[in-house]
Design a protein around this nucleic acid. Sequence first.
DNA 1: AATAAATAAGACAAAATAGTCTGAAATCCG
DNA 2: CGGATTTCAGACTATTTTGTCTTATTTATT
Lengths: 150, 150
Amino acid sequence: MTSTMKVLSNASNYGLRALLYIVSRERGGDAYISLGEISEELDISFHFLTKTMQLLTQGGILVSYRGPNGGIALKRPAEEIMLIEVVKILEGKDFFDTCMLGLEGCDDCNPCPVHHLWREIKGKVKHDFATTSLAMMGQRINEQNLRLIP
Amino acid sequence: MTSTMKVLSNASNYGLRALLYIVSRERGGDAYISLGEISEELDISFHFLTKTMQLLTQGGILVSYRGPNGGIALKRPAEEIMLIEVVKILEGKDFFDTCMLGLEGCDDCNPCPVHHLWREIKGKVKHDFATTSLAMMGQRINEQNLRLIP
DNA sequence: AATAAATAAGACAAAATAGTCTGAAATCCG
DNA sequence: CGGATTTCAGACTATTTTGTCTTATTTATT
Ligand code: SF4
Ligand code: SF4
């Protein structure tokens, strides 16, 4: 029993929360932000977060810099990074293409009994993630003072 | 990497598919249907399916009968069994109450940054599962000849 | 050059999920 | 009664996910 409707893995949760922390934190210029700070602020295991962020670095979302005052930073403008890209890196490219009953070889012509329900839901999730940028989220977080921790 | 947007556990997948198989299969009266048949028809591990269906029996969805020509059957009319009840038994009662970033102590007044997106999605999922009965699904499956296997 | 601060890499462990197997109990039928 | 068929119960294993730890590498500072 999972006991919660878990759509994203913990890795994705952490990755998204970390990115949202970065974009929501106002900062002078393009300074790097350390994984230590993020893991502490968001109360996420440092090493696990590190592994996750490495995937995002390898995936072209982040750049990293070692040494004192090093850390990570967005590789591209926050306006250009959509949530869907992040999730695809952390969950897999076809994350948004399959689904509820987990059957294979699905399309609209060969649907399972819940496809009509799932199609809508999946469509909305995919659309939301594809049209929401990190910049939009950062602005929203600051304007409405939203939280990233329990 | 999960690589698929997995909302339900395998146990729920199997449980739902098994129930849908039962309601879609036209049959004389209220005969029991054996787990062996279901596991074979749906290509699901017999023992794993057995454990899952036991949860549904204990949860008041099914009745079972041992011995030759025994098996399982719906305890109540298919019209009265909503999908949400099945999922709550197999995933946990609060399955439909939490979500995407997996934070705690959430409500609309204390939202995380993706709450506005998730609220809608979660609402639709919950609504769909709460208003769809096994009978509706069975009828749909037969009318449109929908599949329960890959 | 030495030290410290930071990410990179990957081995390792723990926990959750998924799946397998064996034996017991109930039931039918001959 | 005795054997066949079926669910029930629970131990056991395997796989995936999650988390921890250790070591190496890069960079800045003194
Ligand atoms: S038919 Fe649709 S809902 Fe069903 S398993 Fe395939 S993609 Fe998912
Ligand atoms: S605020 Fe809403 S979307 Fe965010 S973790 Fe809580 S219930 Fe989920």
